[in-house]
Design a protein around this nucleic acid. Structure first.
Length: 603
RNA sequence: GGGGCUGUAGCUCAGCUGGAUAGAGCGACGGUUUCCUAAACCGUAGGCCGUGGGUUCGAGUCCCGCCAGCCCCGCCA
């Protein structure tokens, strides 16, 4: 309905122009935006849209807001183009202008998107004057090599994937990057440990199993913490690695490929597509980064380290805080890598990605780090004009005690255990429900439904929360069949499938539509809002808005389903209702798909 | 010490960027099934939007102060 909104907006602006013609020049000189201030009506009683422009203008024009509203309304009432879309506007309260779409207009809009695979969402390619967009880089997930993925990676992975899907749906080229921690200080100790514990692994051509990498990591860490000699050897190892010493490189790639296999299992289960391009990728560019910073006069040598001091960055002691790009031992650190990544991603192809927007989906704790790094990149002139770089932060996953989610013994929860538990719980629920209803289903049906519901619940619980805040993790809540949960949404879709199975030919609906009942109209109205939601998310990067949209859609549909017969409706009503069912199903499928959630026919 | 985030119903959270009587869900209480999956629907109760100022026609939303909780702050990412 976005195009309709824009159309009404232009009529409104014109009307405003006419109604306030005399005052216009003085008004303009006040610098007030002539935005018609058209927004969705705050309540259904107020129609579809409302404009509060009269209230805004009242002061500047020194006129009564109600009077302005009435005169604007009068102009609109005489505008035939406007009247083709809306019924005559109403002025309410102190000067709100309420606009209500004609029923025929709603019917036409539904016709327009019925059977459209994009559901009315414009592709970026169809938009004018914005054809030179480069790709969008979404940097997400990013676990560390030799460590296991845990809850902390859940949000980044799920939110990043969903944002990527939404941009792809809009027609952007998206580069999904897994900026894995495959470089840096911790590899010193890992390689050192590997060389000492399993030297044979480095000689043989085939990679050997390292056993549990997590255990391996812990052993190395323990030695690093306890053993002074081991520590200094490890530091040397880092430098060996960074200078490309073959044996160190071999040990390194052994560790990486081992981890990669483990990560991939998780991504496969969650249906996440992502390209690994770890920190090591940028190693060849680190020196250039430092050189360029040096050349642009940004670097300061402080206690042997090459640093940049930024405004508004202070340490604990209140002194200016440096960002170190080259340590006193000559090594580089994460800021350097992040800078190299920014530089590379914005550089045109073939020596870069030619990105026009970069998103970093990482936890809130890294806000100040990114703020600093972005500032440096800007100073160094690595961010082209018109291009966007944004940190997309998210809050913690907390346990039901309100603290960071941990196991009972206080350890980090492994992601794969979390996935297993979600599916197990979903299966237990499902089996007891089948037993209650006396249904017999095949084992494969049960496995498939449990897996779909389990993962859906997990993803949805995460995405439906405003990402900026921390959220309380609860299997019981996310798997609940009522409320704003994945199972509730999936169930709505199952109901529509039921209609299709029982003879509702959803694919064969004609576009001869008439809506009469309020339940039909409110469902139609909700369906028409899909494109606005997508546009909002593209701007604000808040997938939870898609969740609440889909939840509201399900609620409205369930009300419709409960109160309005579809299959048993009279022939002239049946087609329109089937059309609503079909569009609801399509919207739910596409919407959930954008959240990375597949749907079910039966559950 | 500096910076950031959060504070809305008993609980978990929305709140579309300043608009009309602050919304959901869960939980509580009450109702609905010869009918497309009742995993649903309908209704009732429940609020000093942390707090004190300010900005203006109008503030949960913007600004300042305060209180509480969490996070980050020099060679880890």
């Amino acid at each position: 309905m976005l195009s309709l909104l824009h159309l009404i907006e232009s009529h409104l602006r014109e009307a405003l122009d006419k109604a306030c013609l005399n005052e216009f020049s003085s008004e303009c000189s006040l610098g007030v935006s002539l935005d018609s201030d058209l927004i969705a009506a705050s309540k259904p009683e107020f129609g579809d849209f409302q404009s509060n422009i009269a209230l805004v203008l009242a002061k500047h024009l020194k006129r009564n807001p109600r009077e302005i509203a009435l005169s604007v309304a009068k102009v609109l009432e005489e505008d035939l183009r406007f009247l083709a879309i809306c019924i005559p506007p109403e002025v309410a309260g102190p000067g709100f202008i309420n606009l209500t779409l004609r029923q025929s207009c709603i019917e036409n809009e539904v016709k327009r998107i019925l059977g459209d695979s994009r559901l009315g969402v414009l592709s970026i390619k169809a938009e004018e004057n914005q054809k030179d967009y480069g790709p969008i880089v979404v940097d997400f997930s990013s676990p560390n090599i030799a460590k296991e993925m845990h809850v902390g990676h859940l949000r980044s992975t799920i939110i990043g994937d969903s944002l990527a899907r939404i941009f792809e749906f809009r027609g952007f080229q998206v580069i999904r990057l897994n900026h894995v921690g495959d470089w840096g200080t911790q590899f010193g100790m890992l390689i050192n440990h590997l060389k000492q514990v399993a030297p044979k692994a480095l000689d043989s051509a085939d990679a050997i199993e390292l056993g549990d990498l997590v255990v391996f990591y812990r052993q190395a860490k323990k030695r690093f913490d306890d053993d002074e000699l081991f520590r200094s050897e490890s530091r040397q190892e880092v430098l060996n690695l960074q200078s490309g010493e073959p044996l160190s490189l071999r040990a390194w790639s052994l560790l990486c490929s081992q981890s990669r296999r483990e990560f991939q299992k998780i991504y496969d289960r969650l249906d996440i597509k992502i390209t690994e391009r770890g920190e090591s990728f940028y190693n060849p560019y680190l020196k250039q980064v430092v050189d360029e910073l040096q050349a642009s006069g940004l670097l300061v040598l402080d206690q042997g380290a090459k640093c940049i001091f930024l405004e508004n960055m202070f340490g604990k002691d209140g002194k200016p805080l440096p960002i170190i790009v080259q340590k006193s031992d000559g090594g580089y650190n994460y800021s350097t890598t992040d800078l190299a990544a920014i530089r590379y991603r914005f550089k045109p192809k073939p020596i870069g990605d030619g990105a026009f927007r970069i998103l970093y989906v990482t936890d809130m704790g890294q806000s100040s780090h990114f703020e600093g790094v972005f500032q440096i990149a800007r100073l160094a002139n690595w961010i082209p004009e018109r291009c966007l770089i944004q940190h997309v932060p998210f809050g913690l996953v907390q346990g039901e005690d309100g603290k960071k989610l941990k196991t009972r013994s206080g350890e980090t929860i492994r992601l794969r255990d979390l996935l297993d538990e979600a599916v197990d719980r979903a299966e237990i629920d499902l089996r007891s429900r089948l037993a209650d209803e006396g249904r017999a289903e095949s084992k494969s049906f049960i496995k498939n439904v449990a897996r779909t519901i389990g993962f859906a619940a997990l993803k949805y619980a995460d995405l439906s929360q405003n990402r900026a805040t921390s959220y309380q993790f609860s299997f019981d809540r996310m798997l609940s069949l009522q409320g704003n949960t994945a199972p509730y949404l999936l169930y709505s879709l199952v109901r529509i499938s039921g209609i299709a199975r029982k003879g509702g030919e959803l694919e064969q609906v004609t576009d001869n539509l008439t809506f009469a009942l309020p339940q039909e109209l409110s469902l139609a109205r909700q369906l028409l809002k899909f494109d606005e939601v997508i546009a909002f998310i593209e701007e604000e990067l808040l997938p939870n808005r898609l969740c609440s949209y889909l939840f509201e859609l399900s609620q409205i549909f369930n009300r419709f389903y409960d109160q309005v017969p579809v299959l048993k409706a009279q022939p002239e009503l049946r087609n329109s209702r089937l059309a609503l069912c079909r569009l609801t199903a399509d919207t739910l499928k596409v919407g959930l798909g954008l959240l990375g959630i597949p749907t079910l026919e039966r559950m």
